[in-house]
Amino acid sequence: MKKIEAIIRPQMVEEVKNALADINIAGMTLTEVRGFGNQKGFVDHFRNNEIYVSLLPKMEIKIIVNDEQVDQVVKVIIEAARTGEVGDGKIFVSSVDEVYRIRTGDRGAKAI
């Protein structure tokens, strides 16, 4: 089982959510994060002074999938979240040792 963490623009969350629903990924965890990579910040002003803002708001989506689904899910997320501008985000794939469902106690692939 793999964990896919995708950091995307907040505006693309609906697109990604709908695209994942189309391939039957119906669960995810969303975190509001802030950060930057190649995308530089912007200049805010307050009265006479400039403020350089470089911690940009993004959204992180975490989903757990079976090994076979990883490639498809990553492809779908990239297509849905891409705008072509610097700052589209990144996806990290890592391994997960075990998954449990709290309500029933299921473990493994049944719990995804």
């Binding site: 802030r34 930057f36 530089k40 910040g41 200049v43 805010d44 002003h45 307050f46 403020i51 350089y52 803002v53 470089s54 911690l55």
Partner: peptide, 18 residues
């Protein structure tokens, strides 16, 4: 040119990174 709701920690970034 201004944000209505800037975050308080928005300008704590070290200069060499930006």
């Amino acid at each position: 040119g201004v944000l209505a709701y800037p975050r308080d920690d928005m300008f704590s970034m070290p200069e060499r990174m930006a």
